[in-house]
Simulated assay, not measured.
Amino acid sequence: MRYLSITGFYPDEKQDDSLQFQLTIKDYELNQALAQLTESKKLEEIEPGELELTGAQILQIAELLEVDFPEGLEYFIGARAAS
Rank of each mutant, 00 (worst) to 15 (best):
M1I: 05
M1V: 12
M1A: 14
R2I: 03
R2Y: 11
Y3Q: 11
S5V: 15
S5N: 06
S5K: 14
I6D: 09
T7G: 00
T7V: 15
F9D: 00
Y10G: 00
Y10Q: 11
P11L: 02
D12G: 01
E13L: 10
E13G: 01
K14M: 12
K14E: 11
D16K: 04
D16Y: 06
D17P: 05
S18H: 13
S18R: 14
Q20D: 00
Q20E: 12
Q20A: 14
F21K: 01
F21E: 08
Q22F: 04
Q22H: 09
T24C: 08
T24K: 13
I25P: 02
I25H: 03
I25F: 01
K26W: 11
K26M: 12
Y28R: 15
Y28K: 13
E29C: 02
E29P: 00
E29K: 12
Q32A: 13
Q32W: 02
A33V: 01
Q36W: 12
T38P: 01
E39Q: 15
E39R: 14
E39G: 10
L43R: 06
E44P: 00
E44T: 11
E45W: 07
E45V: 01
E47W: 01
G49C: 05
E50F: 09
E50L: 13
L51G: 00
L53Y: 05
L53R: 02
T54R: 07
A56S: 13
A56W: 04
A56E: 15
Q57I: 02
I58H: 01
I58L: 13
L59V: 09
Q60L: 11
A62G: 15
A62W: 02
E63Y: 06
E63K: 15
L65K: 03
E66I: 04
E66W: 03
D68R: 09
F69E: 05
E71F: 06
E71M: 08
G72M: 04
L73R: 03
E74M: 11
Y75R: 07
F76G: 06
I77K: 04
G78Q: 06
A79K: 04
S83E: 12
